[in-house]
């Protein structure tokens, strides 16, 4: 079929393209329906519109009131600050630590490097709830100077530092895995040339390998930002002060009194989704090119 008459093949491939586009559009529409429904309802009044006329009636008026109210009642500003206080340091630490392990294990051969890669990767795949109770006790019994946290619990428990720690412990696994695969694709010659120049292990890592890993960092930053940002479990079980909790708990706050005020929750949902969406759109290109999970053996 590849050797058919050229006219027919052009017609064929145009037909194919149209079919393909149609298929992709249909899927995209199906994907968007739930989002659009939620978005629309976030611009409507609940009591005097949705509840009276039904969820899918034509809105009487569109309003931004839901956004304003969700912003105030949900304490979104403070919660967002909390989330950033957790996510940003955690992200930096995760990328730093995992790149160190990945570097040591993928660029040097020593006895236990496979063991460590396995350990980190397997740990990341563990169901998180399974380890919660012992972890709670460990944090509770680990003294932590109040100076290094913004609370006065005296132990790690109840501080954002604890949440950062558990994120780092968990997510380092996945990042180590991706980064070690990525580093293996960097030619050894680069390191060897540096070695001849007398560069230490640390300088090779810091000045040669790390800059080359930028695409992988971009990809991981996107994924990890999404995961950490959306974490609800650790943020709520390890932080006993409501004012310390991350943004995912804002929806929980709105969920009581207004449990049936879908429009208000929809507005909060939209606001909460914005940062992750923005990060994804901004890093989309690097995201795809940097996420080398170990493909391409040529």
């Amino acid at each position: 079929m590849s050797s058919g008459a050229s006219v027919q093949s052009v017609g064929d491939s145009r037909m194919k393209r149209v079919l393909l586009q149609t298929f992709l559009i249909v899927v995209a529409v199906a994907w968007l329906i739930p989002m659009v429904a939620a978005l629309l309802s976030s611009f409507r009044y609940f009591e005097r519109d949705t509840q009276v006329n039904g969820v899918f009636s034509w809105p009487e008026t569109l309003t931004l009131d839901n956004y304003r109210e969700a912003w105030e009642v949900g304490g979104i500003k403070n919660a967002f600050a909390n989330t950033m206080f957790i996510v940003l340091p955690a992200l930096v630490l995760i990328l730093l630590l995992s790149s160190m392990v990945a570097y040591a294990c993928s660029r040097y051969s020593w006895k236990f490097n496979v063991f460590f890669l396995v350990l980190f990767t397997a740990g990341n795949l563990m169901p998180q709830q399974v380890i919660f109770q012992p972890l709670f006790r460990i944090f509770k019994n680990t003294p932590w100077p109040d100076l290094l946290s913004d609370t006065d619990t005296g132990s790690l428990l109840g501080t954002k530092v604890a949440v950062i720690f558990i994120h780092v412990a968990f997510q380092t696994g996945f990042c180590t895995f991706v980064l070690s695969n990525y580093m293996k694709t960097i030619p050894k010659e680069l390191g060897e040339a540096a070695m001849v120049d007398g560069a230490s292990v640390w300088r090779q890592y810091w000045q040669i390998i790390l800059p080359l890993c930028r695409p992988a960092f971009a990809a991981l930053a996107t994924l990890e930002f999404t995961w950490l940002y959306n974490d609800f479990f650790w943020g709520s079980v390890l932080l006993n002060q409501g004012s310390e909790r991350p943004i995912t708990s804002s929806i929980a706050v709105l969920n009581g009194q207004y449990a049936s005020d879908y429009n208000l929750i929809a507005a909060a949902s939209m606001m909460i989704a914005l940062p992750t969406l923005a990060v994804y759109l901004a890093l989309q290109k690097q995201f795809i090119s940097g996420l080398t999970l170990g493909a391409n053996k040529g």
């Binding site: 630590l97 995992s98 160190m100 392990v101 460590f116 350990l119 980190f120 740990g123 563990m126 399974v130 380890i131 919660f132 109770q133 012992p134 972890l135 460990i138 720690f165 558990i166 780092v168 412990a169 968990f170 380092t172 696994g173 180590t176």
Partner: peptide
């Protein structure tokens, strides 16, 4: 990294 990971993931497990 190994210490953090083992102490907070594998030990609790």
């Amino acid at each position: 990294p190994a210490f953090i990971h083992i102490a907070l993931v594998w030990v609790p497990a």
